[in-house]
Design a protein around this nucleic acid. Structure first.
Lengths: 236, 236
DNA sequence: TGACCTGGGTTACAGCCTCTAACTAGAGGT
DNA sequence: ACCTCTAGTTAGAGGCTGTAACCCAGGTCA
């Protein structure tokens, strides 16, 4: 009956989860490049090719870890955004930015899965692009409460054209702006892009260890960058 | 005689160069993760273990490619700086920033060797840190012509402490500031760090392909970020 | 109950990679 | 002639990927 099928399915999911968890631990230890299916199998106590019943191959497993990580990061950011919903926009920007960094610092190997060296010719599945956009959604609402950004004319017009050309983006922006929006969509989007770039700058450098031995706290740099952005777009 | 020894040495260098060149091509094609010594050997027309006479192993070869890339990037930036020596500081900042991006875009695989996912537990040799600092040296002189940066108090004080604590850094800053410096060392250094973070943000995102499908030019974002920085530090 | 199907697991193997060991050949020096 | 040093060779151990063929237990169904 269906119940048995259910039970089997559940078991299958459980094993898949265990595999993913062990793989993540292995990545944390030795890096994604060193992930081997047989290594995972050995650690689980099962012999080599068994794992091919669960994942089509090493790269398939990796791809699934990436997708999970996107979701996890998106959750972390939207949690930070909703937790700070009552605060002024500048404080919310800091909250989301630090949530991003905290997530990445707690598990740099996972961050690098998303933002590190990609596999050439690997094409992210189409919905991954959407997921990536979803990660940044909380920023949109926050930056929509700014009012202007004098110097960013070229960037704004490029983004305005993008909004006009791609309906999915237009929808995303409209949904994301929220009721308190005071900024034009292209201004808010320029803010999001800039915030993303700066987040990536700070966190990416920290994650690969390039800040080591420099006498500064990454969190200081991040705070500084977010303040500069808040100033530029006129966040309260 | 010594001459023959010389000739042998030259030959050896020549072969090492050929190996590195082929390896770079292979990385450009399939990514650093897919680099294999035997693959290089096959392409060169020599059989497997022969390459171990020239490099201790795959990772050794990779490490040398990284060091070379640092030098190449540093050259590109200092060339851009000296080529624009007569221009106003804001223009020079743009010139160096775009040189950085151009270098990376022309050979993303090489950029990712420097800034992409690192091998865990791999410790960069000590002089690599110096080389990395050298990459940013041209920015120091340029940003030293700013005059202030009101919001960056915490960052400045951290950097001032670093300068005070580490003589090598103090020397580097003193040498780099140049005769036209109008900024305090900590202000200039804060500017360099910020420029680096933003450079890394834009170029890192572009290099891993995350800008794909977004309706914007990475160069626009970069220009925008550098202008914002120039405004903040008061570059002419 | 007994035949059958399904899915997790197994071993065997082909093919590729790293890196070591042991050997050969040739060029240089004495 | 003899010695040495170096670039290259083949052989091989050990590890990984991924495929193929097989086993076995549990559930299904006549």
């Amino acid at each position: 009956m269906g119940e048995v099928v259910e039970r089997r399915k559940r078991y299958r999911e459980q094993v898949r989860d265990e595999i993913k968890q062990v793989a993540l631990a292995q990545i944390a230890r030795d890096g994604a490049a060193a992930l081997t299916l047989t290594g995972v199998a050995k650690e689980i106590g099962v012999s080599g090719p068994a794992l091919y019943k669960y994942f089509a191959g090493r790269d398939d497993l990796l791809a699934e870890l990436i997708i999970d990580s996107y979701a996890s990061l998106a959750d972390a950011l939207s949690a930070a955004a909703s937790m700070s919903a009552e605060s002024p926009a500048r404080a919310r920007l800091h909250a989301v930015a630090h949530a991003y960094r905290d997530w990445a610092v707690a598990q740099p190997h996972r961050f690098l899965l998303l933002a590190g060296t990609p596999v050439p010719r690997y094409e992210a599945p189409a919905d991954t692009v959407d997921k990536a956009r979803a990660v940044l959604a909380p920023l949109l609402e926050i930056l929509a409460t700014g009012d202007s950004w004098p110097r960013a004319d070229v960037l704004r017009s490029e983004l305005a054209a993008w909004i006009a050309d791609v309906p999915a983006v237009a929808d995303w922006v409209r949904d994301g702006l929220g009721p308190a929006a005071t900024a034009a969509p292209d201004v808010a989007l320029a803010g999001v892009v800039t915030a993303w770039v700066r987040l990536h700058g700070v966190v990416g450098i920290e994650a690969v260890g390039l800040f080591n031995g420099m006498g500064l706290q990454p969190s200081t740099v991040l705070a500084q960058e977010m303040d500069a952005l808040a100033d530029a777009v006129g966040l309260g």
